[in-house]
Design a binder for these strands. Structure first.
Lengths: 208, 208
DNA sequence: TTTATTTTTTACCATTTGGTAAAGCTACGA
DNA sequence: TCGTAGCTTTACCAAATGGTAAAAAATAAA
């Protein structure tokens, strides 16, 4: 017999609650992704969100709670491209599709990419459990799938783990190191050329 | 007629000065690379260095000055591997040698890699000029060299700029994202396998 | 040894930061 | 329309942070 007064009574959140929570999270994403956890301040988030600091603390239990919420939400969308890599499809096409989706995410969600990068760079102090619980199983599963493809002769034999690392590294690079890329490419957008380059790179690597 | 009283009289630094400066920079590297610029505190640096905070400010003009000094020093060693890539050698061997040196640096100098990554991630606010002045010319020069090699038929034709990006991304990944790599590889050291994987990856890409 | 110089410590300070208490305001159902 | 629950603001606070002044200690020069 569930008791809604003792268990965390999470009634349905009001319209205002829904709106303000998302406004705060949007602002927090902006600030955290730019300065990292310790470099971000509640005042910055408050100003960016257009909501007073005490009011922000009415909606979230504290700075860390905002950050954790952000990372949890992120984890879902972040792993989607990898989840979509399907065992039923044509192996090389599946992998190239995955690479393209990752590259699109780097272009469309650079703040999310940097938020993630900041957290990992600093040793994943607030995300270690998430990595173990969410990322690791998916990673292992997809490594096994890739290994199957290779054993079936559909792909050249390479280390699946390092293959995935190199896909992550090369795609996220364009979001995380954008400040450097922009200087070196004189501000020209990199996406098209990057997509072509990476398709060629991994096609040559993986063609059986 | 040089006037040592008006120009910044930089006499030869004493033994004590030399030692303490380097102790402070070593501690600062540790702290900055772990928490980023804004996340690091002078107190942390002072404790790590075993030198009182006011004494640290006797040797450096402030927090920012320490950080800038660190980044300047880093820039030199950081670009060495790329500088060593010589136009006289065998093209593929030169590139594979460069990749190996970069991977070795990721293993041997992970703090330096993270310091750099932190700075770029946050938009290179204190390093933009350095990138333009030091990195950009070297980058352009080596891109031109690689293009020559390709035009001479010594390497397969790929975009030299994105080639270098992918080399940076894949090698530095093992330092910058170590927290993630360690979880996914169950703590097993990655270096050997990574070296073999990357040699294969770029050999297949670049063999003419 | 005495003097001049460099190095280190002690005792502060102003600002920033995450966070709270409590009063005031608003919206919404009865 | 009135009361109440939900939302927002005002006015704070304690701790942390970058930084300073000046005295004390150590070192080097005479």
């Amino acid at each position: 017999m569930p008791d809604t007064t003792l268990t965390e009574a999470k009634k349905k959140p009001s319209r205002i609650q829904l709106r303000n929570r998302s406004v705060i999270l949007e602002a927090a994403l902006e600030v955290f992704s730019q300065h990292g956890y310790r470099g971000a301040t509640l005042d910055q988030i408050a100003t960016t969100a257009g909501i007073s600091k005490p009011n922000i603390l009415y909606y979230f239990d504290g700075k860390e709670a905002i950050h954790v919420t952000l990372l949890s939400h992120l984890m879902e969308t972040w792993l989607d491209p990898l989840r979509q890599m399907n065992g039923d499809g044509e192996p090389l096409a599946e992998l190239l599709g995955y690479i393209n989706r990752k590259l699109d995410m780097a272009r469309d969600l650079p703040r999310e990419s940097r938020l993630f990068a900041n957290e990992i760079l600093q040793g994943a102090p607030r995300m270690g459990p998430h990595l173990q619980a969410d990322l690791k199983p998916l990673f292992d599963e997809k490594c096994a799938l890739i290994q199957e493809w290779m054993d079936a002769g559909k792909l050249a034999q390479v280390d699946p783990q390092h293959l995935i690392f190199s896909i992550w590294a090369t795609t996220q690079h364009y979001a995380d190191f954008d400040a450097q890329v922009a200087v070196l490419l004189d501000g020209n957008p990199a996406h098209e050329d990057a997509a072509a380059y990476l398709a060629n790179l991994f096609t040559k690597l993986l063609s059986p």
